[in-house]
Amino acid sequence: MSPAAAPASSAADTRHAEPTEDNVRELVYAFYDRVRADELLGPVFDEKLAGRWDDHLPKMCRFWGSLVLGTKTYRGNVQQVHQPLDGIEPRHFSRWLFLFLDTVESRFRPAAAVRFMEPALRIAQSLQLSRFGWDYPIPAEQQALLERVAPRRHPKNDVDDAHAHRPRGEPFPAKIVGRATDGDA
């Protein structure tokens, strides 16, 4: 699937309408299968998790269950765990977000998918800020992904008033801090 494409909804849509413990587990395992097979991310994860995938995947199920289902079973510090990773660049975050979004969208309907994507974007932004500082250049592919997830608002007359509390031009669900690569955002 291209970054600009999104799954079409239809009467035969088999994607989940709501996250459950079982489908969160399926999502996590499917996503990390893709990460492990990815040319950019696979080596980074394999270096860190070699021989420990059987411990890591249940932990990620607890993490996403805590965020999306409110189970509160995950205990850990996301910033601290990710700081010792050497060689990580903005493109790694872009690729992670793309694979995650693509996997979420293929398994969940839009309203449920947002429940995963909002924290994913917030966490990625927080990790990027701590690693690269406030003025890191947002890679073009990440900017395209943000537009795919949350197109910028249109002028007031084109937007319903239910979302009028968001600043004009800001993507939903989270304001992304950094510099757009084309200098206009």
Rank of each mutant, 00 (worst) to 15 (best):
M1I: 15
S2N: 15
A6H: 11
P7Q: 13
P7N: 14
S10N: 14
A12Q: 08
D13Y: 08
R15W: 06
H16G: 01
A17G: 13
E18W: 03
E18P: 02
P19N: 01
T20C: 02
D22W: 00
R25T: 09
R25G: 07
V28H: 02
V28N: 05
Y29A: 03
A30T: 15
A30C: 09
D33K: 14
R34G: 07
R34L: 11
R36G: 13
D38C: 08
L40R: 15
L41Y: 07
V44P: 03
D46P: 04
K48R: 15
K48I: 12
G51R: 01
R52Q: 13
R52I: 03
R52S: 13
D55R: 11
L57K: 07
K59S: 12
M60T: 09
F63C: 05
W64N: 02
W64A: 00
S66I: 00
S66V: 01
L67R: 06
G70E: 02
T71Y: 01
Y74T: 05
R75V: 07
V78W: 07
V78Q: 13
Q79Y: 10
Q80C: 00
Q80P: 00
V81Q: 09
V81Y: 09
Q83A: 10
P84F: 04
G87A: 08
E89K: 15
P90C: 07
L97F: 07
F98S: 11
L99R: 13
L99S: 13
L101G: 13
L101T: 14
T103G: 13
V104Y: 04
S106F: 03
F108Q: 06
F108K: 05
F108L: 07
F108H: 07
R109M: 10
R109S: 08
R109G: 11
P110T: 12
A111Q: 15
A111G: 10
A111K: 14
A113Q: 05
A113I: 02
M117F: 03
E118N: 08
E118T: 12
P119C: 05
L121E: 09
R122F: 11
I123G: 09
I123S: 10
Q125P: 06
S126C: 12
L127C: 09
Q128F: 01
Q128R: 12
L129N: 08
S130N: 14
I138E: 02
E141C: 06
Q142W: 02
A144L: 14
L145Q: 09
E147N: 13
R148W: 11
R152N: 08
R152T: 14
R153S: 12
K156E: 15
N157R: 14
D158A: 14
D161T: 12
H165S: 10
P167C: 04
P167R: 12
R168F: 12
E170N: 03
A174R: 03
K175V: 08
I176F: 10
I176P: 01
I176C: 03
V177M: 04
D182H: 02
A185H: 04
A185C: 00
